[in-house]
Design a protein around this nucleic acid. Structure first.
Length: 302
DNA sequence: TAAACGTGGGC
DNA sequence: TGCCCACGTTT
């Protein structure tokens, strides 16, 4: 563990000290295995820490390597993913495992290569660099986006936020630095009622120094999550229902509307078909020999 | 109940 | 390039 020492600003020293004095004890913080880190980061895309913790352990127990994940039937991945939401993340994870296997079985350690992997974007690529390879890379997720905007005292654009994060990162301390800021974002620099007392960033935080004037600079700033469209009655809801139904067994053309939970609604057939098509586009469903919808890669009943 | 440790496609 | 939108489920 590198010592927190000279060459750093006082602010950088304080942030790193906060990591030394104790980060949250999360299971993925105990590994540097690239596949394990990648699975964690994909799982944490739009899923809260509390819900991902035990699922990450179970997923890796079943698919400990990219080879194991690449070879498994998609239906098995979806079983392990059930309840986490956004199942195309599981599909992309498998496509990534397949791509890695076809390239020698080694997860890349360069940003541009990581970005070619399905489901790996600017955040996840840098998280793998920082948390698996301990290379200098500044992550910008909703937590960092919030911290950066408040510190700047104004909403930031995407490139601007990334540039500030890059400039802020102390060289050679990428792992601890990024983990520290994730905890500061989640526990202190929260969306509502931030806990600024004792915050290592407070002295350089423009928003705090100005006594938190409205509006919150994080609102509308890059990478900061925003409210979603209504879920009830949405295509997303129908997708979830149809995929769950297909996991129980092949869905016939006649049973499609009911499986998607759209029975009795106007344009039920057309809507259900559109929902099925979107799942096919994502590589989650396919048609079998009898035109039933089944999980991709599964064999129809003889 | 609103919010939760993003990515990819379209314009 | 950059903004908008779709994408699931749980507590």
């Amino acid at each position: 563990m590198p010592r927190v020492d000279a060459g750093l600003t006082g602010e950088q020293r304080r942030v790193l000290l906060s990591a030394e004095s104790g980060l949250r004890d999360l299971p993925w913080r105990r590994t540097r295995d690239p596949w394990s880190v990648l699975v964690a980061e994909v799982m944490l895309q739009q899923t809260q820490v509390a819900r991902a913790e035990h699922r990450w352990v179970a997923f890796l127990k079943r698919f400990p390597t990219t080879a194991a994940c690449a070879e498994a039937p998609l239906s098995e991945l979806l079983e392990e993913w059930a309840g986490l939401g956004y199942p195309r993340r599981a599909r992309n994870l498998q496509l990534t495992a397949i791509q890695v296997e076809s390239n020698g079985g080694v997860i890349p350690n360069r940003l541009e290569d990581l970005l070619t992997l399905p489901g790996v974007g600017p955040y996840t690529a840098r998280a793998v660099l920082a948390f698996a390879f301990e290379e200098d890379a500044a992550i910008v997720d909703t937590n960092l986006g919030r911290i950066l905007a408040r510190r700047a005292g104004r909403p930031l654009g995407r490139a601007e936020a990334q540039a500030q994060a890059d400039a802020w990162l102390p060289s050679g301390q990428s792992w601890a630095w990024n983990q520290a800021l994730l905890d500061i974002g989640a526990l202190r620099c929260r969306p509502q009622a931030p806990v600024c007392t004792g915050c290592p960033v407070r002295r350089t935080c423009a928003w705090a120094r100005a006594s938190w004037p409205a509006p919150d600079p994080a609102a509308g700033s890059a990478a900061v999550s925003t409210r979603q469209a209504k879920f009830e009655g949405s295509a997303r809801q129908a997708r979830g229902r149809l995929l769950r139904a297909a996991q129980q067994g092949a869905v016939s053309p006649e049973g499609l509307s009911a499986a998607a939970g759209l029975e009795g609604q106007a344009d039920a057939q057309a809507r259900a078909r559109a929902v099925a098509d979107s799942l096919v586009s994502d590589g989650l469903l396919e048609r079998d020999g009898a035109s039933n919808w089944v999980i991709s890669g599964t064999t129809p009943n003889p």
